[in-house]
Design a protein around this nucleic acid. Structure first.
Lengths: 344, 344
DNA sequence: TTGTAGGCGTTATCAA
DNA sequence: TTGATAACGCCTACAA
């Protein structure tokens, strides 16, 4: 037996389809008709067909979510989005691309072909052209986490450069003068900006950057391991390292532990991203915490206002601030130089 | 300007819609028509409307994914599923319910209303009735991670009891006789089975279980903290603790570090789940690793075969095994008793 | 307030 | 092979 349609409901309730449709869309309807329709729906186990509705209304009540991978950060955002958007009747279709251009294309084509109402995506430079194409369509595109420069659309980003600069300045305050940095992919704005923060902190302190201490990775755990390995093997190794994301930090920690080095004692360490466990890895990893809830809230607000039509015409560009969580992994040089600092 | 339809393509190519449709569905078509259609599609930037297609075919090429939350485990599975199912043309709509009955209902209703082709879900006892309802429909339901007893459908589960028993037996081997356990919700099979494993290990070793050492939590970080706090405050505290999942372990670790206790020295610790960082938390957390890839592979295989119609009539019931990763957090009593053991 | 009918973009059927 | 046409389930005028 097939699924009942609005027509079956109408029959069973003894009214016309139009009436049932109006009932489903919360429009005025006679009271006795209402009860009979409700009865019929319950009897038949009727469930509205979203597809058919979408055909007419041109609204699928679906939002796409495209990220490189479902790591702690992206999963956290997803959790919030599912909750807040579901409350407004939207479902979320997820895609991830692992930084592969093919996967990106496929995802965006699938999204477009499914006529999703909007798409939230974490940029990658590979994404640029395709996104432009999307933008010419009528689907709102909201970019977060990683900027796609030159694309004019709503964006919710963190203050990468400022946060990195702040963190590295703190490291300098603590007495470090040779600070290694492990960056992510420099084709993306996130990678660039975080490195830029590192550089500016040095400039501001009148220190020069030793190019040898700049390791360009690509956000992966292995990059962190390799970088740290290289640092440790140097004639004059850095006394502290700044990592541009948490995965690379994990790699770095792994390398340190393989080499019997102790964080906060043999070497200091500060990282972008603050997954829960960084608190628990002795002596506590000093980390830049990205405000996931806040980012998700902005994304939700923007998506909904775009879909309502209540959003302003011009694209919105939001930058949220990060907090530096000072922990034991920043301490080596302080002890060496005898300086003292209070936590923030 | 609206999106071009198959009709526009037909016009532009000078053929009938039926021909275009056949082209789109990889059916035989005259060569010259094929090239003209491809030309037209490129010119117009045509993209097939999945909705309209779904109306006819009764296939949305969409799979639902419903879990309590997007933690490391569920995100890992999701990552694999998105990849493997996307390769076959399926998209994934995600839902999470935070163990709230309302959210579950809403998710399942939304899923049903969207006419998804199948749904993969991590069971909860609250889910039972609703799932039964779903099962009467024609959408395949695949349960993983947490069983929903009494529901006859495809399942992919890990050998919770055996893995827990094995782990706790190891703890006993290492000389522990007072072992605390922090369980998850006992309304679900996962919680029950893991506790059962703990109990059986004791039985097998001829040890009795001190009820005082059984803390019933609900999978959350706070539960782990509270449990450990209670253990530490005891007259005769346990020398080791078995945690039923990683979140509770994190809570427990947090509590230990707050109290200045050292893992593997003051107290031993073994946990279900093996997120990456457990390796890095000194002295390394001994953990039961769930084979995420394997689980995802089974899920994929089952979903696809159900949708193909190539699956057997009876529900499949798959149990995968877990590996115990021995690390430094299991060692206290060994040293105390002078025993030696080799790793597995 | 209600009933009727046309159309959303596809696919499937049938004749040509 | 191809073209024409009737569905698929719903919404929305429009007329009653």
């Amino acid at each position: 037996m097939k699924k009942p349609t609005i027509l079956d409901v109408a029959d069973s309730a003894g009214v016309a389809v139009g009436t049932v449709s109006r009932y489903l869309n919360d429009q005025r309807i006679r009271k006795d008709n209402r009860t009979r329709i409700e009865q019929a729906i319950a009897d038949l186990g009727y469930r509205a067909n979203t597809l058919a509705r979408a055909m007419k209304t041109e609204r699928t009540n679906t939002v796409g979510y495209l990220v490189p991978k479902f790591d702690e950060f992206n999963s956290g955002i997803l959790t919030q989005l599912v909750r807040s958007l579901r409350a407004r009747g939207y479902s979320i279709v997820t895609f991830h691309h692992s930084d592969e251009a093919d996967a990106i294309n496929e995802a965006l084509e699938s999204a477009s072909s499914r006529r999703i109402d909007a798409i939230i995506l974490s940029g990658t430079h590979e994404v640029t052209e395709k996104v432009q194409e999307l933008l010419t369509g009528e689907q709102p595109v909201i970019i977060f986490n990683n900027d796609v420069p030159g694309v004019e659309t709503d964006k919710v980003l963190v203050n990468d450069e400022a946060a990195a600069q702040d963190a590295v300045s703190r490291m300098i305050d603590f007495g470090h003068t040779r600070i290694g940095v492990v960056t992510g992919d420099l084709n993306g704005s996130t990678g660039q900006n975080r490195l830029q923060g590192y550089t500016k902190a040095h400039e501001q302190a009148g220190l020069s950057v030793d190019e040898e201490l700049v390791y360009v990775g690509n956000w992966g755990q292995l990059d962190g391991y390799t970088a740290m390995d290289r640092f440790l093997g140097m004639e004059n190794p850095p006394s502290a390292v700044f990592f541009s994301n948490y995965l690379m930090t994990i790699g770095g920690l792994d390398c340190l532990s393989s080499n019997g080095k102790q964080v906060g004692k043999d070497i200091d360490l500060v990282t972008f991203d603050d997954p829960d466990m960084f608190r628990l890895i002795p002596p506590g990893i000093t980390a830049i915490e990205q405000p996931i809830e806040q980012i998700a809230r902005h994304l939700t607000e923007i998506v909904l206002s775009r879909l309502d039509g209540t959003a302003p015409d011009h694209p919105r560009n939001i930058r949220v601030n990060c907090a530096l969580k000072l922990r034991g992994s920043l301490g080596v040089a302080r002890k060496a130089s005898g300086k003292t600092h209070e936590d923030s």
